[in-house]
Write a protein that binds this DNA or RNA. Sequence first.
RNA 1: GCGGGUGUAGCCAAGAGGUUAAGGCAGUGGAUUGUGGUUCCACCAUUCGAGGGUUCGAUUCCCUUCACUCGCCCCA
Length: 434
Amino acid sequence: MDPIQSLPGTEDILPTCQWLGSDIKVAPVHTWQRVEEVARELFRRATYREIRTPCFEQTLLFERGIGTATDVVSKEMYSFRDRSDRGCTLRPEGTAGAVRAYVQHSLYAQGGVQRLWYSGPMFRYERPQKGRQRQFHQIGVEVLGSADPRADVEVIALATDLLQGLGLKNLTFYLNSVGDLHDRQRYRDALVAYLTPYQADLDPDSQHRLVHNPLRILDSKDQKTQAIVAAAPSILDYLADQSHWHFDQVQQQLAGLGIEFIVNPRLVRGLDYYSHTAFEIQSTDLGSQATVCGGGRYDGLVEALGGPATPAVGWAIGLERLTLVLEKLNPNQPASPEVYLVSRGEKAEANALYLAQQLRQAGLAIDLDLSGSAFGKQFKRADRSGAPVCLVLGEEEAAQALVQIKWLGSGQQTTLSQADLLQNPAQLRQLAQG
RNA sequence: GCGGGUGUAGCCAAGAGGUUAAGGCAGUGGAUUGUGGUUCCACCAUUCGAGGGUUCGAUUCCCUUCACUCGCCCCA
């Protein structure tokens, strides 16, 4: 019988690395846990609170929130009808759901600014490749209720602190402003006017986009298109005074915090709801899917989803890409047990189980050998477990309520009384060090 | 949706139209039935992703199919 495989574009995160040839395909789970720990601590310090929203929503939410013209909505959604014939969609990103919850529960009525974070699986029906899956994971933040450029800078600082706190190198931070709706409309017209004479020279995709989504032509990877776009007007010349001021403030304040950035006027982001600040953090340690973090301001979204006009800014980090980079940079070992417990014989085995239970309750990480095989084999496993010491319980020790402690590094061994050990289990940790 | 690559054990792999399908890692058992890290021995693919074809003979050649993978589009 053929074993059942996971669906394409979905991956298991295992206790050990998943390899793809000599490349790491999926980082081991302890690497994910490290990211989550560092992130939680940063969020705590900056007073962001977690929000957990459903993994699926009404399809309409994403159509309204992200925009029907975007690729994410028009061709990448995991949509289905439930038994009551409701249109449902597995969330392709986290912002729409968070904003929906914000509106549904009138979080704006609490006044002031809401700082939120979330983490979880997202779904897009795309062809999987390196750093891109159908089920992937994001961790993200949203600040709702502030139009202040400091809010933009605060969230950006959070992202750079997180990535740097994890020890990432080779990152490039690209910053842009896409202005407000009016700025963008004027720029769009100017861009179309500039590109139309070159229409025939553009790559086929871009010719199509000239009609539907001209801004996207700016970051085409086609060389010829790139050459044409190089001389195109810049959106930064089309920002109204207010937009311009906002962008200036963001840049000055970023500089004030010592955060390095590159202004890239050709950076456009795929989702409709962005306004003003848009940014991306890329890593050179990935394949062609290099963006680790993407975000920006979305002042119109809350209103578009039926709430009061509320400015907002946020980002999302792709955890597959982040953990991949992290693992490539410094592969780290999972924690070894503190003690490996070896036993042989019926009485001794029962005694060992009891000891393990007691020591675990005292907070020690005990690996209890369950194999029942010869001592020799058990010591072999003890050695491989990476534990600094092992406890040995044979029939003789069990009969006298003793236990032997053996240092796996030196091979030295002495006898302890079980009663004494259980009286003060923490001494094991000291013994293990010495 | 479009293009390229790859399928030999849990993992990494060699092989080539002829029948015992190398080797390494991991695993299991033993030398060593109460003491590991070294060493030695044994075991570990009735079968080369699946189906069909050519052939006396196919894992190798041809076709089909499936799976995986990288890239384009787009995004985290």
